[in-house]
């Protein structure tokens, strides 16, 4: 029981890690997968090396408890996206 939006893509409602071809990684709840962009809700982003933290470290930290949102909604252009994976599949163990 609840609200479902089956036409928004298989990752709709799933918190995902969006790795880009650049230094930035996004984490947010996937709202919609469009041909030209992926729309995330309640999203945050991290630049590799910012705050002395690599993207891998940031992602592992996020995998424990989630992220503090920077944006209610952000659209990431497909051209920037290297991969999309579920945050729930990221290992929480520090390396």
């Amino acid at each position: 029981m609840g609200t479902f939006h089956a036409d928004s893509g298989p990752l709709h409602g799933i918190t995902v890690v969006v790795d880009t071809h650049g230094a930035r990684v996004y984490i947010g709840r996937c709202h919609e997968e469009r041909p030209e962009e992926v729309v995330l809700l309640d999203a945050d982003a991290h630049e590799d090396g910012a705050d002395g933290c690599t993207n891998a470290e940031y992602t592992r930290r996020a995998a424990r408890f989630g992220v503090w949102k920077r944006w209610d909604r952000v659209a990431v252009p497909r051209a920037e996206i290297a991969s999309i994976r579920r945050l729930g599949d990221v290992s929480q163990a520090p390396r």
Binding site: I14, T15, D42, F65, G66, V67, W68, R86, L87, G88
Partner: peptide, 29 residues
């Protein structure tokens, strides 16, 4: 300091948070 998410599950022992299940560990399962 845990970021807000819902649904989520928090377990306390003697008033202290000992385990937290955020939304991303629930969704899709």
């Amino acid at each position: 300091d845990i970021p807000p998410s819902s649904p989520a599950i928090a377990l306390f022992r003697d008033g202290r948070l000992v385990h937290f299940v955020p939304r991303h560990m629930i969704e899709g399962r």
